[in-house]
Design a protein around this nucleic acid. Structure first.
Length: 175
DNA sequence: CCAGGGATCCCCT
DNA sequence: GGGGATCCCTGGC
């Protein structure tokens, strides 16, 4: 994933994600139907759904399906690859591994905010491409984080991560 | 290392 | 009016 926000290129490898289904998934923002907040989820795939939580944090999703199928993938962690000095300016932390090992941390480090809500993910501001260097043999799975309220959906193994990667979010490397 | 709690505000009911 | 797809700091062991 690349972003050019603030005119500084930053690149990271996506190492942890969570899938969210639409109106059948009690953990999904689309569960209660379309609202002003989640409207982007109901739009075309390949666009960014950026939402604001806890009064101070942003999280980035990739819209994955077509109209009226409001499914998305939450980007939960990145391995910083390029533009690390810029990331450190946007997000202060002592250890490099804390730069982007969480969904709100990576938005801070890459300066992703509500201005990118609805943005085309193959655009100039933000760009996602496939990672040819990552084999698929080391992928772990677990329930999603922070969705204990979601009934049986809380147990669905929809969190995927690279087992051996140091940048998977802190405290959740198991599964 | 782990558990607990506070911060902070937009959106939906 | 209430809660959240989180983070950070503190205190205890």
């Amino acid at each position: 994933m690349r972003t050019a926000a603030a005119e500084e290129l930053k690149i990271g490898r996506i190492v942890e994600v969570e899938a969210y289904f639409g109106e059948s998934d009690a953990a999904a923002h689309a569960f209660a139907g379309k609202t002003a907040r989640n409207a982007v989820l109901f739009g075309p795939p390949g666009h960014a759904y950026v939402y604001f939580v806890y009064g101070m944090h942003h999280c980035l999703n990739v819209v994955t399906q077509g109209k009226d199928q409001p499914e998305a993938v939450l980007i939960r962690a990145l391995e910083p690859l390029e533009g690390i000095a810029a990331m450190r300016r946007f997000r202060r932390c002592s250890r490099e591994r804390d730069l982007s090992n969480g969904p709100a941390k990576l938005c801070q480090a890459l300066r992703i905010g509500r201005s990118l809500n609805g943005a085309d993910l193959s655009g100039r501001e933000i760009f996602i491409e496939s990672d040819l260097e990552t084999g698929d043999g080391d992928i772990g799975e677990s329930p999603r984080i922070g969705v204990d309220y979601a009934g049986e959906a809380a147990a669905w193994p929809l969190r995927l991560f690279l087992k051996k990667n140091l940048y998977v979010s802190r405290g959740f490397r198991g599964g």
